[in-house]
Design a protein around this nucleic acid. Structure first.
Length: 379
DNA sequence: CCAACCGGGGTCTGCCATAGTA
DNA sequence: TACTATGGCAGACCCCGGTTGG
């Protein structure tokens, strides 16, 4: 599959020189007009450079929200040489409707400084990972900045090659580009730094295969490459200090749910840990039990304290012991509403949590309902 | 057959700061 | 000096079902 990608990238290289043929003619005309209308007003003194009225007009015609664009990137509206028509036509050709185009430019005005060639080239590179134009449109619609923030297509290609070299499959790349498209606009250097950080961590923890360690963290957490190395470092240090895990415990944590927890904002995580620890200790858990709880159930770092606390209340009210929860923390993954419903239904059939434990709560809807039906028949 | 264990899956930007550049 | 490119930040779960061992 890497070979396929490389072949497609090669094709793009080859057609680079041919691309200018597909310039829309409108674009050149607009640029020329623009120079005539606003070249007289750029005095370097206190008077700010005025906005380009022709450009404003063009954007209005396209349905762009000028106020929003001005708020986000005011400089773009003063530019003389822009390509709004070309960009709009480009996006429409790829299947975007008028509203989508307008929304994209409103939210990321700098898009109109990109040339048709740059965009087409970038598109082809994205297309080597996506299966259809419509997939790309939906990503751009969600996050215009990811596509337009950089025009360095060489960097984009290098990123893809680099990610492939880590052993990520085309499915992995697809997932990352869909859910965390900004990853591909990072400089290659930045992505490399993060990979190095993770790899060094794997080595430090004595993982026999640090490359697989890195790959696993990235596939478990598509967002990891969007985070700063500073944040990841802080969080790793925090895990170390708060949980004092053994190497193998740490590896297990990071290769499982912990991978997702790595990119939490450090303060949030610390606050959460503190609040939840206090709550559990008030309920009679030892510090060791609390640590084990977080190791067994890293999403606790992620959960909002209020929601988690709510769920605990919910269990306590139904005479479920906190120690039962410690044994089965996964039941916290269900929403409070769902837990409440389930507990009510179980109480209705006289289910005894003391006797049977709480594992029944940790089951899929289908399984739970089947079980409940059985209990009903018995009762 | 069933409970328990365990891994997987979906989903994820918009803004600000600043070094570098023309 | 204005503008661009890029780094960085805050925000904060829920659910399903395959497999396995008794």
């Amino acid at each position: 599959m890497a070979a396929r990608l490389v072949a497609q990238i090669m094709q793009i290289y080859l057609c680079r020189t041919k691309v200018p043929n597909c310039f829309p003619s409108a674009q050149l005309k607009i640029s020329y007009l623009r120079l005539c209308t606003s070249s007289h007003s750029s005095s370097p003194g206190t008077i700010p450079k005025p906005e380009n009225t022709v450009l404003l007009n063009n954007l209005t015609v396209l349905g762009v929200d000028i106020m929003m664009a001005r708020k986000r990137q005011p400089g773009v509206l003063r530019k003389v040489d822009t390509n709004e028509e070309g960009v709009a036509e480009f996006l429409r050709n790829k299947g975007a409707n008028r509203e989508t185009v307008a929304s994209i430019i409103s939210r990321y005005p700098r898009a109109i400084t990109r040339s048709f060639c740059q965009l087409e080239e970038r598109w082809q590179i994205w297309r080597s990972i996506f299966n259809a134009d419509s997939e790309i449109i939906s990503v751009i619609e969600r996050s215009p900045e990811s596509y337009f923030r950089s025009s360095d297509n060489g960097n984009l290609e290098k990123n893809i090659t680099f990610l492939c070299s880590l052993g990520l499959t085309s499915k992995d790349l697809h997932r990352i580009l869909t859910t965390a498209p900004r990853t591909f606009s990072n400089s290659l250097e930045l992505n490399k730094q993060m990979v190095k950080l993770l790899r060094d961590l794997g080595v430090r923890l004595g993982d026999k295969n640090p490359d697989a360690f890195v790959k696993r963290i990235i596939t478990k957490n598509a967002y990891i490459l969007l985070r700063s190395t500073k944040r990841i470092k802080t969080n790793v240090d925090f895990f170390t200090e708060a949980l004092k895990p053994s190497n193998s415990e740490f590896i297990k944590l990071l290769q499982g749910h912990g991978a997702e927890v790595l990119d939490l904002s450090s303060d949030y995580m610390k606050r959460n840990f503190k609040n939840i620890s206090e709550r559990l200790q008030l309920l009679g858990c030892s510090i060791e039990e609390v640590k084990k709880f977080f190791l067994d159930y890293p999403p606790a770092f992620y959960a909002s304290f209020e929601k988690l606390s709510n769920k605990i209340d919910c269990l306590l009210e139904s005479d479920i012991n906190i120690k039962q929860l410690l044994k089965k923390p996964r039941i916290l993954e269900f929403s409070a509403k769902n837990l409440k419903n389930r507990i009510e239904e179980l109480e209705r059939v006289g289910y005894d949590f003391k006797k049977h434990g709480v594992t029944i709560l940790d089951s899929s809807r289908r399984r739970f309902e089947a079980k409940l039906e059985k209990l009903n028949e018995e009762g």
